[in-house]
Write a protein that binds this DNA or RNA. Structure first.
Lengths: 132, 132
DNA sequence: CGGGATCCTACTCGATACTG
DNA sequence: CAGTATCGAGTAGGATCCCG
């Protein structure tokens, strides 16, 4: 990953630096920026869900996109995917312990967002009026 | 962890409408998902900064993109933009009270991210090996 | 110094059809 | 049911140049 620079040691043994352009922390922030990732995690915070249950809970999502989202989360170790060899097939997604530990921070953000929707809308209207 | 998937969506709707496809909360989550928004906010949490200071602090970011980010934040009422009629010109960006109230939640997320970078990298490597 | 204007690439997301 | 395959569109982000 990091190939040069004096901060190499710090990067390796410290927690990392969000402001370093090469810091992998950016990758996590990018995940959260995904359109459905946060929603999927919040849905799963209440318990394991099947593919269709996630799709219905999220709303309008192309199956391809939902699969991409879930695969990424699985690769990151945030959720686990369990396949049951039945007919019809059944696949259950579950938060891993690490995934569960993410719930509190992202819920804090989404709670903030819901709380401040009116204030932000007002600010936007005001801004648009001043720049009409 | 209790599993009761039937009325999952209903429970979530009780505490908000994040899962409503048309909910404006999505807009805030999308903003946070922007590539530089969180970084800019965290930088500004230490005090007012000029355009160039933000650019240098963030790293490699095209001025056009940084301007877009800052304009959006200003429109949302999260930061304020103050222009000084001097030569050379000076523009200072400052967090508004509402912007400051966002710092705690997003710092919680970024702290989580920095903490779990090693675990996530390990999970990714393991996943990639199993699917080689 | 702090952008605005312009052009371009990449990637995400979406819709639809099909399958083990 | 739980995806995969394919095609296509919209847009955030990037590179570069220029101006008050």
């Amino acid at each position: 990953m990091v190939t040069n620079g004096e901060h190499l040691a710090a990067k390796f043994f410290d927690r990392g630096d969000v402001f370093d352009p090469d810091c992998p922390t950016r990758l996590i922030l990018d995940r959260i920026g995904d359109k459905w990732t946060v929603l999927a995690l919040l849905l799963l915070s209440k318990g394991p869900l099947r593919f269709t249950e996630l799709r219905d809970g999220i709303g309008r999502v192309a199956p391809k996109v939902l699969t991409q989202t879930l695969r990424r989360l699985e690769r990151d170790g945030l959720i686990s995917r369990e396949v049951f060899a039945e007919v019809p097939p059944r696949v259950v997604y579950t938060l891993t312990p690490m995934g569960e530990s993410l719930i509190t921070p992202i819920r804090a953000v989404s709670d903030w967002a819901e709380e401040h929707v009116p204030a932000i809308s007002a600010a936007q209207n005001s801004y648009d009026l001043d720049n009409a």
